[in-house]
């Protein structure tokens, strides 16, 4: 049957360029733990391909014979039938499955191996639709951007304030859900400094697609320095010296912003939205939807629904001067 053969060949040809051009994601692991998964993947892909090709080959060869078979050719087939079904249907899967079962549990155990007691712990709390990030050891609070030291396993504790979310940074590790009423844990480890993107993997409502996260791995010194900087409150302002920044701070405290956001060192202590004490140090805004530039920040403050439809942040009415001052102020919060 020529048509069938062509179809299968076409399918195979389609697969080769598609697979060979893959980069990024879990195929490009940057972590000793994600590495193990990728070993599993290649073993399984290899085995599966062999089985698939064998079966298709058998089918095509059979079809070629079967379109010529006469009724008489069927005699004496019973033994061959039996070998094929028992061999292919029982012996083959049993062998493969035994190997895979051992591999999967072994890999699972080494991935979930506990980190040392001195490992950094990060608490990640899911909200519709952003990530609250806390460092219980140092009391740091930030959002949507997790800094970790590279080359060490880090404990991630996962909780949720509202619905179920799922934490997934494919280059570093598989995903674990954030479930209200439960604390889950996950260990991630970046083998070298770098930035790794991820996003919420469990459907969590309107902006499920806009709930993205960034993991920044840096060497231990930079990480310690980052911790120290993030621990500082926002600088106290003096209206005489920094008139513009002070205006901005007043705009923040005098508008709806303050109901939801905290800036440590000021009276702003809302907790519904991300902590903004060091907002200017973060790379992106709106749970990593847009770059953290002055223009984007302005657009986000004035009309968040245009950037991220459904977000719980309301639009803010500000005069041009107020906005200008507010932007200056926020950009000063390194």
């Amino acid at each position: 049957m020529r048509g069938a053969r062509l179809g299968v060949v076409a399918l195979g040809l389609l697969a080769v360029p598609l697979l060979s051009s893959c980069t990024g994601g879990m195929l490009d692991p940057q972590s000793p733990r994600a590495d193990k998964v990728i070993v599993l993947w290649w073993v399984m892909l290899g085995t599966s391909s062999v089985i698939f090709v064998f079966l298709c080959g058998l089918l095509l060869w059979g079809l070629r014979r079967a379109s010529r078979n006469s009724a008489r050719a069927r005699e004496g087939q019973l033994n061959r039938d039996r070998y094929l079904v028992l061999g292919g249907g029982i012996a083959l899967p049993v062998t493969v499955m035994v190997v895979l079962m051992v591999l999967t549990v072994w890999a699972g155990r080494s991935i979930t191996e506990a980190a040392g007691s001195d490992a950094v712990t990060v608490e990640v709390i899911g909200h519709q639709w952003w990530w609250e990030v806390r460092y219980p050891d140092t009391g740091l609070v930030t959002a949507n951007e997790i800094h970790i030291p590279s080359g060490e396993p880090v404990n991630i504790l996962l909780k949720s304030e509202d619905v179920i979310h799922s934490f997934w940074v494919p280059e570093l590790s598989g995903k674990i859900d954030l479930i209200p009423g439960r604390t889950n844990s996950l260990i991630i480890e970046a083998s070298h400094p770098g930035e790794f993107r991820g996003q919420c993997a469990e459907f969590c409502g309107l902006q499920h697609a806009g709930m993205r996260i960034l993991v920044v791995a840096e060497d231990r010194d930079s990480f310690d320095q980052w911790v120290q900087e993030q621990g500082e409150p926002a600088p106290a302002l003096n209206p005489a010296d920094d008139a513009q920044l002070w205006e901005g701070q007043q705009a923040f405290l005098g508008s709806a912003c303050v109901y939801c956001h905290t800036i440590r060192g000021t009276n702003g202590s809302g907790t519904l939205g991300p902590d903004l004490t060091h907002i200017a140090s973060r790379q992106r805004l709106a749970s990593n939807m847009i770059p953290n530039t002055r223009g984007h920040l302005a657009g986000w403050i004035l009309d968040p629904q245009a950037v991220k439809p459904g977000t719980q942040m309301p639009p803010t009415q500000l005069s041009a001067d107020q906005l200008d001052a507010l932007l200056d102020y926020l950009e000063s919060l390194k």
């Binding site: 035994v98 079962m101 051992v102 072994w106 155990r109």
Partner: peptide, 10 residues
């Protein structure tokens, strides 16, 4: 298979 899991995963 279940027993394999018990032995390997503990």
């Amino acid at each position: 298979f279940g027993e394999v899991a018990v032995v390997v995963a503990g």
